[in-house]
Lab assay of single mutants.
Amino acid sequence: MTEYKLVVVGAGGVGKSALTIQLIQNHFVDEYDPTIEDSYRKQVVIDGETCLLDILDTAGQEEYSAMRDQYMRTGEGFLCVFAINNTKSFEDIHHYREQIKRVKDSEDVPMVLVGNKCDLPSRTVDTKQAQDLARSYGIPFIETSAKTRQGVDDAFYTLVREIRKHKEKMSKDGKKKKKKSKTKCVIM
């Protein structure tokens, strides 16, 4: 069974824990209790493949930012979460993405942009803004509501699919490099 290491990042209060708990335990946590770091595991079937999701729910508070490099190193894919009623959390996505790329030393890291709290009427981040940002990053965008469960499975499952595509691409690139290195030079 394939294991996928997913990391949920975003500013404090955007609903990272609520999304994760909704996926794992099928219930909505409405009281806000700032996370330092929590880890969850769940076995699911995605596109006919049974897999184990190892999900790291991270601290959004700035005082825990020193811990970010460590979990970013171990993560295979990242859910970059903002709240649709919090423009600052949307603007912060850029910083999370840049930090992930720096730590992973790669421009090509599996990510999904997630606009959470889409059940709320007080939207300050337009869907088109988020779609445009995701398009500019070359990553999928999904709106979710941890409260109603809308888009929750889709967000995590899409990230797994992005990781699969990335692994497939990397193995193809690896095979191309191996083929090239088999060419021999004969000096007579």
Rank of each mutant, 00 (worst) to 15 (best):
L19Q: 14
Q61F: 06
G13A: 11
R41Q: 11
G10E: 00
K42F: 08
T35F: 00
I21D: 09
C51H: 12
V44I: 11
I24T: 12
L19K: 12
H27N: 12
A11G: 09
S17W: 00
G60Q: 02
H27W: 12
T2D: 15
V9L: 15
N26M: 07
D54W: 06
I55V: 14
S17T: 06
K5E: 06
C51N: 11
T58G: 05
P34H: 03
H27S: 11
V44P: 11
L19T: 13
I36D: 01
D47N: 10
G13I: 11
L52M: 15
F28C: 06
I46Y: 09
A18Y: 01
Q43K: 15
S17M: 02
G12T: 12
D33W: 03
R41M: 07
G10I: 01
I46N: 13
Q22R: 11
T58K: 02
G10W: 00
D57T: 00
Q43N: 13
E63C: 08
V29Y: 11
L6H: 02
E31R: 15
L6V: 11
L19Y: 07
L52F: 13
K5N: 09
R41A: 08
T58C: 06
E3R: 14
T50H: 12
L56H: 07
A59C: 06
I21R: 12
H27V: 08
Q22Y: 05
T35C: 00
G12A: 12
G12E: 14
V7K: 10
S17Y: 00
D30N: 14
G48Q: 11
Y40R: 00
Y32V: 04
A59M: 04
I36R: 01
G15W: 00
F28A: 04
V9C: 12
V7Q: 10
I46W: 08
Y32Q: 04
Y40S: 01
E63Q: 10
I55H: 06
Y32W: 12
V44H: 13
V14K: 07
A11K: 05
V44D: 13
Q43T: 11
Q22K: 11
V7C: 10
E31K: 15
V44E: 13
Q22N: 15
I36Q: 00
A59N: 06
I46V: 12
T2L: 09
G48D: 10
L53P: 07
E31H: 14
G13D: 12
E3G: 15
Q61L: 10
Y64S: 06
D47M: 06
I36F: 03
L23A: 15
A11H: 09
P34G: 04
V44L: 14
L19M: 12
L56R: 06
F28N: 03
F28G: 03
G13H: 13
Y32T: 04
I24R: 03
H27R: 12
L23P: 02
G60Y: 02
V9F: 13
E3L: 08
V45R: 11
L53A: 14
V7E: 06
D54H: 10
D38F: 00
D54S: 14
V7R: 15
Y32K: 03
L23M: 15
G60V: 02
D47L: 05
E31S: 15
Y32R: 05
L19A: 15
D57A: 01
E62G: 09
Q25G: 10
L53Q: 08
L23Q: 15
N26S: 12
L19V: 10
R41H: 08
N26D: 13
Y4G: 13
E49A: 10
A11I: 15
K16R: 03
I55Q: 03
E49R: 09
L19S: 15
T50M: 11
Q61C: 13
E62R: 07
I55M: 10
L52G: 14
Y64W: 10
D33P: 01
K5A: 04
L6N: 01
L6E: 02
I24D: 05
V8E: 03
Y40M: 01
L56Q: 03
E3Y: 09
S17I: 02
Q22M: 05
Y40E: 02
V7M: 08
Q43P: 12
G15K: 00
Y64F: 11
T20N: 07
E31I: 14
G12Q: 14
L23T: 15
V44N: 13
D47H: 10
V9Q: 04
N26T: 09
G12L: 07
A11Y: 08
K5L: 03
P34E: 07
Q25W: 05
V45C: 14
I21F: 05
E63S: 08
G60H: 03
L52K: 15
E62P: 12
E49V: 10
G13R: 08
G60F: 01
T2K: 15
E31A: 14
K5W: 01
N26W: 06
A11S: 09
I21V: 15
V9K: 03
I36L: 06
A11L: 15
Y32H: 12
A18V: 07
G13N: 11
D54N: 14
L19F: 08
P34C: 05
V8L: 08
V8N: 02
V44R: 11
D54M: 06
V45D: 14
V8S: 04
G10S: 04
R41D: 03
L6C: 08
K42E: 07
Y64V: 05
T20E: 03
E62Q: 09
T20Y: 01
E63T: 09
V29N: 13
G13E: 13
F28K: 03
L53K: 06
T20F: 00
K42H: 07
Q25D: 08
V14A: 12
V29E: 13
L52E: 12
C51S: 10
H27P: 03
D38P: 00
Y40G: 01
S39C: 15
S39D: 08
D38K: 01
V14I: 13
Q61A: 15
K5R: 10
E63D: 14
G10A: 07
V7T: 13
D57M: 01
V44S: 13
Y4F: 14
D38A: 00
T50A: 12
V29D: 13
Y4W: 08
D30L: 11
E37P: 02
L53H: 07
D57K: 02
A59P: 04
N26G: 12
P34Q: 05
L53Y: 09
Y40T: 01
G60L: 01
Q61W: 05
L52A: 14
A59E: 03
T50S: 11
V45Y: 09
D38E: 01
E62M: 08
V29R: 10
G10Q: 03
V29I: 12
D54L: 05
I24E: 05
T2G: 15
Q61D: 15
L6P: 03
E62N: 09
E3Q: 13
L23Y: 13
Q61H: 13
F28M: 07
T35A: 00
L52C: 15
P34M: 07
E63R: 09
D38Q: 01
T20A: 08
